[in-house]
């Protein structure tokens, strides 16, 4: 009898717990998705409705006005897309190459100066010279202001990823590397043909995070770019959102004079946000597992 009652008590407890768990998770999920919904809906709402009723969960009347205007001169936003896609691809490739080469060498037992070089790399995480000397170096000494390469160079090397990669490289069996050496393979041959294929999961996951950093970078643009043909997507979006002048110039021919009254700046801002974010958000479900894996690798090793 007692045992039975005990069993019932446990299952009731379990039920209450499950209810709270589901409720919490659903609440957080809705909270995470709702803002995205509002932005998309806002972009399809007529400007006059935004002025009279504000943003809402569902518009009274759907309007494509903002998108029509946004795509009337699409070359500017496409150019920003081009810059972001190319810097992301090129930057991620170079960054992964540097990170994996360095991570591999730093964990090799027969590399005697690995301790020194690990400290050399790690110290940059502990201490930095600050924004100003870095800014002056890039503008006045390396003369990278208003160049395409500044977007790639400033993000190229993340010490945290090097340490992560180094830890992951340790999982490659030493015997494999030894065997390749005995067969007369050179270090680079061993690295590219034997080691890299074995760490593909780490490359994919770390690569995702590097790519995401490149994709979302806007501060570099703000610090170093004045030439708007070089603007990456996020900085382009920032300028659109924060300057009505810039928004007008981006969506109308230079000569035309649309009065402020007719210009749908509110819905256009949201439409631009959707255009700049939509494609990458649509890709996200396919990439999710790499991110989860990447975070987990990092979590295990700290």
């Amino acid at each position: 009898m007692k045992r039975n009652r005990n069993g019932v008590a446990i299952s009731r407890d379990r039920k209450a717990f499950n209810a709270i768990a589901y409720a919490f998770i659903i609440f957080v999920t809705v909270l995470c998705l709702l803002p995205f919904w509002l932005v998309v809906i806002g972009s399809f709402t007529a400007e006059s409705e935004i002025f009279s009723r504000g943003y809402s969960l569902w518009p009274h009347e759907f309007s494509m006005e903002a998108y029509e205007l946004a795509f009337r001169y699409p070359d500017r936003v496409f150019r920003a897309y081009g810059i972001t896609v190319s810097t992301t691809v090129l930057g991620t490739f170079l960054s992964l190459l540097m990170t994996s080469l360095c991570g591999y060498a730093l964990q090799r037992d027969d590399f005697k100066s690995r301790g020194f070089f690990t400290m050399f790399v790690f110290f940059t995480m502990l201490f930095s010279g600050g924004l100003v000397p870095w800014y002056l170096l890039i503008t006045n000494y390396l003369h990278l202001k208003d160049t395409y390469w500044v977007m790639i160079l400033t993000q190229l090397c993340n010490v945290y990823f090097i340490i992560l990669m180094k830890n992951f490289m340790k999982t490659v069996p030493k015997a494999l590397i030894e065997a390749a050496k005995i067969d007369g393979a050179g270090e680079f041959y061993t690295f590219f043909r034997i080691v890299l294929p074995l760490v593909k999961p780490a490359l994919a996951s770390i690569g995702m995070f590097v790519a995401l950093n490149y994709w979302n970078e806007w501060r570099t643009g703000m610090l170093f770019l004045q030439d708007d043909t070089l603007f990456p997507l996020q900085y382009y979006l920032y300028r659109l959102l924060n300057s009505v002048e810039f928004l007008k110039n981006a969506t109308t021919a230079m000569s035309s004079n649309i009065s402020s009254m007719d210009f749908p700046s509110e819905s256009l801002k949201l439409a631009m946000t959707v255009i700049a974010t939509g494609p990458i958000v649509c890709l996200y479900p396919f990439l999710q597992k790499y991110f989860v894996k990447g975070i987990t690798i990092g979590a295990v090793k700290g």
Binding site: V39, N216, Q234, Y235, L237, T273, T277
Partner: peptide
């Protein structure tokens, strides 16, 4: 998403 987009949100 970037903080630029969060700003818009």
């Amino acid at each position: 998403i970037s903080w630029v987009v969060v700003g818009a949100i």
